[in-house]
Design a protein around this nucleic acid. Sequence first.
DNA 1: CCTGTTCGTTGCGTGCCAAAACTATCGGCA
DNA 2: TGCCGATAGTTTTGGCACGCAACGAACAGG
Lengths: 404, 404
Amino acid sequence: MLDPSPARTVARATGAARQSTVRESNLGLALATICAAPSPPSRATVAAEAGITRSTASRLVDELVGSGLVDEGVARLAGPGRPATPLLPAARVCALGLQVNAAHVAVRMINLRGEVLAESRSEPDLVGSHPDEGLQLLAGHVRRVLDQGPAGARLLGAGLALPGVVDAAGTRLLKAPNLGWTEVDPRAGLAPVLAGIPLSVANEANLAAHAFAQPTPGRRSAHAHFVYLSGEIGIGGAVVTDHQVQEGSHGFAGEIGHVTYLPGGDPCPCGSSGCLERYAGRLAMTTRAGLPPSTTLVELGRLARHGHEGSSRALALAAEALGVVLSGAINLLDLPTVVLGGEIGDLAEDLAPVLTQTLQERVMASPWMTIQVTRDRDDVAGATGAALRQLSQVVQNPSAYVAA
Amino acid sequence: MLDPSPARTVARATGAARQSTVRESNLGLALATICAAPSPPSRATVAAEAGITRSTASRLVDELVGSGLVDEGVARLAGPGRPATPLLPAARVCALGLQVNAAHVAVRMINLRGEVLAESRSEPDLVGSHPDEGLQLLAGHVRRVLDQGPAGARLLGAGLALPGVVDAAGTRLLKAPNLGWTEVDPRAGLAPVLAGIPLSVANEANLAAHAFAQPTPGRRSAHAHFVYLSGEIGIGGAVVTDHQVQEGSHGFAGEIGHVTYLPGGDPCPCGSSGCLERYAGRLAMTTRAGLPPSTTLVELGRLARHGHEGSSRALALAAEALGVVLSGAINLLDLPTVVLGGEIGDLAEDLAPVLTQTLQERVMASPWMTIQVTRDRDDVAGATGAALRQLSQVVQNPSAYVAA
DNA sequence: CCTGTTCGTTGCGTGCCAAAACTATCGGCA
DNA sequence: TGCCGATAGTTTTGGCACGCAACGAACAGG
């Protein structure tokens, strides 16, 4: 158990730089600049924004336009001097985002501009279901979205968001307690409808957090560091530092629902006890409030505001539990923002007072920092994030796309 | 409290690449390769290891030798073919690491090879002391180390490790509960003895974790992802992902001692209650065991092994508390290794059974990962890390040094 | 119609690395 | 002793990226 050996050492993995590296880096910078711009920039604006000369920017943009990653607008940008050609991320370059959780199945097609080109969704009850059921439902949505989508669309890839532990390679779901799925490889079942589009799987909350950190491809939100909490029947989470989702060494990071709130508390199907999910998960809250398990959190919040005792108690306990666990994350990682997403986002305003109070008390550095509690309004954030992550990879390194 | 505004966006901060960027990057790569090599490499070995051509490697190494960052060995490397000149990180390029905590004051001079050139330390009791007392003691050690150190030493900088919350700029200690210091700027007091050497301040556990992740400048340990726990009177910590210490958005990250173990538990001077430190800190453990506060943890461990009831109970409770809090960190961040440093490292073998068991039970992904508990044997790891961090900056970007 | 302004392009120079040829210096072997 | 193979390190040539500066293009306003 205890490893007495001194740490062995390994060489550093950073690669050598060459001229082509400069090109690749600047090509990515140019594309990211165009994607991040609040309004379509000209070549000159890209140059100024990116800190390169106009000649170089022009060469880079020409290459991006040539490869189809950037569109040139038709209307010229007026003003004194020669009118400029506006540049926009390509509308036809897009990716699919898929999502299955216990209450939502959704598929979105999103393009490089961050526009949703097509969408299909349903709200089945997949608690304790067989994987095939959910995957077939999902396949139907994929078909509809592919039909709805524009004809000339160029699909880069697809991502699937699942509420559970996914292996490091992004191929297999190991365990999704609330769906009741174990060891599922969704790629085989979806391959027919995806028609050759590569699919990568990831944890739903991690993808939702990605979408919150980078709301459109290449654009970074004002929140660089935050802890994301995705509350449905269970609770998932993610830690984002410097706009990047922390994946951990195997890709298992983000299981905040199974962080202990109360040692020796309610036993949890995961094998532990006192997990946050047993106090702030939907099922736990409705049960505690004496409501039927199908009650939504919106409904529970409404009842609490109208004086329903059980709901109020359940809410207060959830807020306390969230405060204790989130303060732990903040103490450990100095995260100034808490984002409530998924269904629990609907309770944000009800939870905020107790939650904020608890955070103030329990975060050691609270006198020197302000902690913000905010919410994510995207109700299929997992699907959004799954598509955006595919697109981000291209923005990061357009050379790979240009070559292909 | 609740922020309703949608996330505003900011442009990406990555800079433009040019030819000089390639040079800088490869110069850093060459130096890092030399530093990370298990035995002094030749120019040809550097080229092979770094993935660049011999001609380029030669030019880079020549520049490093010329600037004094790399030494050429005198003895040739024998074997078939032309003998090679061995390359070593410069022995005379070094940095100072300073440390003050409640029980240890230490100063180390470490060079680019990771060798300790000089050291001076003492073990005063600074609990509730005045900052001037500790800083004057420290200044004495600095003087002694500067005297002891080799004559031609080229000092790059100095780092100071403190057991508390340090501001983002690395200039001021905001709060160190166990020393009883608040709002201290150590740079003014130390400026006379440091004679122009720039000083940067940081949290002790963060620096200790840095030293564990990168045991000598430019070399990376086998542990890329881990949570570090530095246990003295209080408990500090750090999270390391991909060999990098997580600093957080203000540099406050790592306050694992004030993560809640038991909501509503023992009140803590930090204003919260049930903090880990109240169960696994030295003071908490000795008090609980019915021993005088000056008892060391080694002593407590010895007593527990010899059947002392109170000590055994205190140990078991500490292990349980550590297990609960660390499992939370692992669930959140997927960290396969726990490192026990500082005085609590002496208890590693006593804590490991219960700790490992608790981690197995409480970490959701434990069936798919092995969690290793190990220890850091450096008893002034804060000072070591403070010096190493200074040196790492040069290895990262030698161009800045070459120019100066 | 002229002028000032900004956009975008073109040609040239510089700096860096890759590739390959070349030189230096060993060990081994007849 | 002298030759050969092997490896280290250097030199030369070429290619490719960007910066710089000058130029042409296309507008707005007087």
